[in-house]
Amino acid sequence: MNPWPIRSRSLAAGMVLAALACALSLPPARMLIEQSMLWHMVVQMPMLVVAGSLLMQSVPAARLPDRLARWNAYGLTGFIAAQGIIVYWMLPLAIDRAVVLPATDVLKIVSLLACGALLARAFARSAVVVQLFFLGYTVSMLGSAGLYLLSTTRRLCNAYSLESQFSAGLSMLILASALTIAWAGFTLRRRESVRDPEPARMREAGPRPRTN
């Protein structure tokens, strides 16, 4: 159906997305993230995470050093590191700094790409229940931050106006719901596709014959 193997597709998509996200930090597109909290927090930052994740998915697991993977059973270490990175970039003072200081902006790009890469490995190695724990935490954090931005009349970022803060809050709520739905859909589809076909065939054949 598709002439491209899935890894090359991930690589190409990851590179395009990473390039687009980086372009948002450079003029003339930088104006968008300088003037809109929504473009900064809800477009560029998630784009970087997704790009990092796609790039990591393009690397075959066998090529990754075992030595590192041994410290990351079930992707637990990766989940915690990724969570730390996400929490940091949700701080208003960190967002302000990324707007004003180019060095911090570079740090933001690198750390969010790394966050995506860590998450790709973590999701690939972890059980659904661990994923749900991480996702639940992230979504509730994103959701409550979004609600706060929507409801407060205090300007939290020196770099953004109150209106910009309001629309960012609203789209953070939408992003939180979208993430939950996307994860649920993805997990259900994956469960379908990896289900062992054997029991299904047996069910069709009727009750098992007795062996003794």
Binding site: R70, W71, N72, A73, Y74, T77, I80, A81, Q83, G84
Partner: peptide, 13 residues
């Protein structure tokens, strides 16, 4: 090892 690494990463974060 993972427990140790996770704890360190959590403390660092």
């Amino acid at each position: 090892r993972t427990f140790l690494a996770s704890t360190l990463v959590l403390a660092a974060s």
